[in-house]
Amino acid sequence: MSSPSPVPTTTRSEPRTFIIWRGDKDSGTYTPYTAEITAGMVVLDAIHQIQAVHAPDLAVRWNCKAGKCGSCAAEINGKPRLMCMTRMESLPPGPIHVAPMKAFPNIKDLVTDVKWNYAVNKRIKPFKPKQVEADGSLRMQQHDIDRVQEFRKCIECFLCQDTCHVLREHDKHAEFAGPRFFVRMASLEMHPQDAEDRREFLKKEAAIGYCNITKCCTEVCPEHIHITDNAIIPLKERVVDQYYDPLAAAIRFVFGSKK
């Protein structure tokens, strides 16, 4: 649990320099802008100010401004983060670098082409209920759904996808589903009332074996989902029941099965 970083009570403003990527996938430059920062501002506020005052065509995605929609993912000082949840007070002094996510093609400025994610999702077999009660609903105990609810907190910001080296450095988009979709499949596979089996897909089409448990995805998740420990490792174990994955087998050997 983090402790709150207090908001200064002053209403004075202070100029800060932002160095923002202006361009597209073919060309562009990092361009400096100045924004007037007041107490409590987040990076997205500064971007909006720059847009309204200096650069009306500066492209950026956002919706909720409260960390709920996952639209405003970017790389701030090199770290994948939500712009609307990054308080200016939390950043060190000096210019602030804002760049688009690197694991996806740049459309313009801070906006990237994330369509690939939607295509991956479409290939995941949907929920299939096991036992529907006469009244048309399901019976489940809270303690049986706690872990599924953790996965369902995902806001599809795709920061974990951006960070995962399998996508970011090795460009395995064609073969590898990425942490976001392991989280999604975990939410289905561990649903107490789901009757579907996605193990073959996980192994062959989602290539979960490529994940070598670096935990970088977990570190950047703004929803604090334990992507690696709670989703990926248990899924790897399930796949091991059917197929052989040396890393998962080793983990199980060391830690025992979690089922």
Binding site: S137, L138, R139
Partner: peptide, 17 residues
């Protein structure tokens, strides 16, 4: 209720509803 059959996971009562 139909949402639940499509995969929604609402918080539960003690008797699982």
């Amino acid at each position: 209720k139909e949402l639940e059959l499509w995969g929604a996971v609402f918080d539960r009562t003690a008797d699982g509803k």
